[in-house]
């Protein structure tokens, strides 16, 4: 899913999630909470889209560092049927 409005709304949503957990002083906990949240609440096509964006924009990336760190720990989502 490329997402109708481009990746912008997914980036915004991911960064909102990142902002909540970013205030956790335990960085490892924050990272795992972001990954857990994305895995538990985002349909695989949304996860694929945000991961694709992150991969394709290694240098100029609008995602918060905590989100990028979380994405790097997440397995590739299964394909939608």
């Amino acid at each position: 899913m490329s997402h109708s409005s481009g990746p912008d709304s997914l980036i915004k949503m991911a960064n909102q999630i990142g902002s909540f957990f970013d205030s956790f002083t335990d960085r490892e906990l924050a990272r795992s909470e972001v990954a857990k949240h994305l895995s538990r609440f985002w349909d695989p096509r949304m996860r694929r889209a945000i991961m694709a964006y992150d991969t394709e924009h290694k240098d100029h990336n609008a995602l918060m560092p905590i989100v990028r760190e979380a994405l790097s720990t997440m397995p590739a989502p299964p394909p939608n049927n």
Partner: peptide, 11 residues
């Protein structure tokens, strides 16, 4: 796997 929420369905 989780499915789409209403706003996600619209997108």
């Amino acid at each position: 796997e989780p499915g789409l929420r209403i706003p996600n369905m619209f997108e």
